[in-house]
Design a binder for these strands. Structure first.
Lengths: 141, 141
DNA sequence: CTACATAATGCAATATTGTTGCATTTACAA
DNA sequence: TTGTAAATGCAACAATATTGCATTATGTAG
């Protein structure tokens, strides 16, 4: 598990403890062929006879994301917020990680570029969703 | 409420009934300055002394999405799936709406283009997430 | 090696999100 | 005005997510 060793080094280097639950979650993520939800992690562990509280799993995943040892994927079926209107199936949002402000913007050429890229990979795109996380103008102190 | 009238026309044209609950939800979406979750819709209505079952709200929002009168937005805080690894803060997925297959792909120039666009709008991007929904090669029969 | 301080976990409780089946009501057309 | 098909409400439940606090375990200092 070389990947896990690397993650463990990062944990230690940043002053976080290397606990059994953290190692268990890292192992699940490393072995998983797909992105997994916190709930998936719990079920996979249960199948091995191991048990972790789901709260613990959430906290570990949050930490791993914070340390860039994991990342969040927003697949379909996710949190749903609806707004009225249709902008040609291309929805691009900027979300400020500081103040939570968000702003939608459209860029037609970018959409076409994306479509073309996917097309070359054999994929026919019907809807785009993009989110940029970062700092808005106000929060770039 | 010109927007609502338009939506109502679409409903009628497609043979869907124009019911009180549907008009209530459309009104909430139209007045909302932000994307709202189904739960948000319910709370907003409650504040006005109106009440709709949450199941009804889910069904209406699904219908509006189906008719392209609304769309789903995947903001941060959504359904979380984590995988180990860090690919420079740019995660682009193609998800097949038919078979659910997904595939991650990277494109550096696209990322830079996106960063630049956001930059011109005063936004400093740290992480990208993109999802393309459509049909994979296998499902384009 | 032991014991301490504190970080991390487990647990309890609760809130939010989402789905299904069926009884009842409502919209709209005849 | 009335019939009927569509839509809603209700009940039940499953899954997802967050908070506060008691308990446990890690890493360190002795």
């Amino acid at each position: 598990m070389p990947e896990i060793q690397g993650a463990i080094r990062v944990l230690r280097a940043k002053g976080y403890k290397v606990t059994q639950p953290r190692k268990q979650v890292l192992k699940v993520l490393t072995q998983a062929q797909k992105p997994v939800s916190p709930y998936d992690v719990q079920k996979i562990l249960q199948q091995r006879g191991e048990h972790l509280d789901h709260v613990t799993i959430y906290r570990i995943l949050d930490l791993l994301c914070l340390l860039n040892l994991a990342h969040k994927v927003l697949l379909s079926g996710g949190f749903v917020k609806c707004a009225l209107g249709d902008e040609e199936g291309c929805h691009r949002f900027m979300v400020c990680r500081q103040c939570g402000a968000f702003q939608e913007f459209a860029d037609k050429s970018l959409c076409e570029e994306e479509n073309e890229l996917a097309w070359h990979l054999g994929f026919r795109t019907e809807q785009h969703f993009s989110e940029f996380f970062g700092l808005c103008a106000k929060c770039q102190g």
